[in-house]
Simulated scan of single mutants.
Amino acid sequence: MNQEEQVTVLGLWGSPFSKRVEMVLKLKGIPYEYNEEDVYGNKSPMLLKYNPIHKKDPVLVHNGRSIAESLVIVEYIEDTWKTSQTILPQDPYERAMARFWAKHVDEKVMVAMWKACWGPKSEREKETKEAYEGLKYLEKELGDRHFFGGETIGFVDIAADFIGYWLGIVQEASGVTIMTAEEFPNLQRRSKDFIGNDFIKEVLPPKQKIAALLKAQFGSVTSKLNVIKV
Rank of each mutant, 00 (worst) to 15 (best):
Q90A: 08
K136W: 10
G196F: 13
Y32T: 01
Y165A: 10
I153L: 12
L135I: 09
Y76L: 12
H62R: 13
V156W: 01
F148P: 02
I158R: 01
E202M: 15
A102P: 00
I195N: 00
A116C: 13
H62P: 04
V24G: 03
Y76I: 12
G219T: 06
W166Q: 05
D161T: 14
D38K: 12
S122Q: 10
V203I: 09
D106C: 11
T86W: 07
A159H: 06
T83E: 12
E22R: 13
E78W: 13
Q3Y: 13
E123A: 11
Q208F: 06
R20D: 00
W114F: 08
V74Q: 01
V109M: 05
S66W: 10
Q208K: 15
D161Y: 10
I153R: 04
E183Y: 07
K207E: 05
A159Y: 09
L204S: 08
K56T: 11
A173T: 11
G164M: 09
S18K: 03
K82L: 11
L204C: 10
W13A: 03
E75R: 06
G11R: 14
T80M: 12
I169P: 02
Y137R: 02
D38Q: 12
K56L: 07
L225P: 01
F199G: 00
L135G: 00
W118C: 00
Y40V: 02
G175H: 14
G119H: 02
